[in-house]
Amino acid sequence: MESKMINHSVPTEYQSEQGKLNILGFWIFIAAEIILFATLFAVYGVLHTRTSDGPTGEEIFVIKDVVIQTMLLLTSSFTAGLVIHEMRRGNVRGLITWLIITLALGGGFLYMEINEFIHYVHAGAGIQTSAFTSSLLTLLGTHGAHVTLGIFWAIMVIIQLLQRGITPITASKVHIWGIYWHFLDVVWIFIFTFVYVGGLI
């Protein structure tokens, strides 16, 4: 617990010793998350042709909506980058503004995803229909649950930024949240490529 030394030559989030440990720890956590999603992808890869009496992917995917979802999430990743940029400039207001915009985009994504699920259920592709739908909805659902968590997490961070401004601690929280958000975006790109585009080819 060598803690308190503040090193001003590095970005704020790296200035406290604990902040540095947190960031490394979180990267390792992300490694574990990558394996978690890789496993879900593998499960989907094994089961996606096993549709039983239910519909296939081609029959239910609405590619236009998925493209919009992708745009929303990609843009939110870009704005999440601006969040860090504003933080490095020490601009709390800019930081919070971009954070809120990012969350709005994330919320839009979630809204579309919920609609997508409703559409699947109406199309006779509920989670209990077949191995294919079980694995599809679990993969999407796990990602969606992560996004939801990310949104609530960011709200907590925003409140703390309002209370305390940019300190080594709040900065490392923003930074870690940023890693998480970008990671979810990367996972989505894989989902888009392998599940939707791959499912239509």
Binding site: V46, L47, G54, A131, S134, S135, T138
Partner: peptide
């Protein structure tokens, strides 16, 4: 857990589970 509690078909005999 999903298979047992929420009726999914990952490892079941029926409906394509493996």
């Amino acid at each position: 857990t999903m298979d047992r509690i929420f009726g999914t078909h990952f490892f079941t005999v029926a409906d394509g589970g493996l």
